[in-house]
């Protein structure tokens, strides 16, 4: 599903160069659930941005679902992002002026679906996340956990097959976070490929594989699950 080879990203200002990613190589198979951990400044967000086609890279190669994305223009990247990738953000990133249904509808409109199809998909994903009765509510009328469920519904609505989750439970209390993680696990069990950035080692341990970044490079790969090195906190 995702294949990065020797990807580098350098942020330049007039006086300083910052190597956010250094020759990073990573393979993620279709249907895998990978957790990405690492300290602040390790390059997690840059990796997420590049993997999600939100920004470009300076060197190396990146194939998404078999397609080389290096030479794509802005329109092609937008289309690929819309069709292949679902985003789940730490701060939910719902549009405050739009109700729940309209929020979920946003990527579907950019996809060009007809109104009836969009409505069908909105209704379906709201049922999946258990918020079928909240279509007309504004984000501000929902709890944090509910908002993240809406964000997950928005990510799922286009059937992307590849989910990028950036600290999906970072803004939630533990009981709410558990519910959201259970939902993400369920999505994974249904066949989605997931890369989840997290600081929470317990959550990371739920992934099939754990990747640790440090200084823009992959420094540790772990199979995750019970008894793993990361579960015991040794690698972070």
């Amino acid at each position: 599903m995702l294949s990065m080879k020797n990807v580098s990203r350098i942020y330049r200002t007039d006086v300083v160069q910052t190597h956010a990613l250094r020759n990073l190589s990573l393979e993620v198979e279709a249907g895998e659930f990978v957790a990405l951990v690492g300290p602040s400044g390790s390059g997690k967000t840059t990796f997420l941005n590049i993997a999600g086609l939100l920004e470009t890279f300076d060197d190396g190669s990146y194939q998404l679902d078999g397609r080389d994305v290096a030479g794509l223009n802005d329109n092609d990247r937008s289309r690929l992002r819309n069709e292949k990738i679902g985003f789940i953000f730490q701060s939910f990133n719902l549009i405050p002026e739009l109700n729940i249904a309209d929020n979920i509808d946003v990527p579907l409109r950019y996809r060009g679906f007809a109104a009836r199809e969009r409505k069908r998909r909105v209704d379906r994903v709201l049922e999946v996340v258990g918020l079928g009765g909240r279509k007309k509510h504004l984000p501000s009328q929902l709890s944090g956990g509910q908002q993240q469920r809406v964000a997950i519904a928005r990510a799922l609505a286009g059937d992307p097959g590849f989910l990028l989750a950036d600290e999906p439970t970072g803004n939630l209390d533990s009981s709410t976070a558990a519910g959201v993680m259970e939902l993400i696990n369920e999505i994974h069990r249904n066949g989605a490929t997931i890369i989840m950035v997290t600081h929470d080692l317990e959550l990371a341990a739920r992934a099939e594989r754990i990747v640790r970044l440090s200084d823009g490079q992959v420094v540790l790969l772990d199979e995750g699950g019970e008894g793993s090195e990361l579960e015991n906190g040794a690698a972070v």
Partner: peptide
Amino acid sequence: TKQIGIRRALGAKKRD
């Protein structure tokens, strides 16, 4: 600005 970025992340092209 943030909302525009979110829309772009969700697949909006510049012309959108």
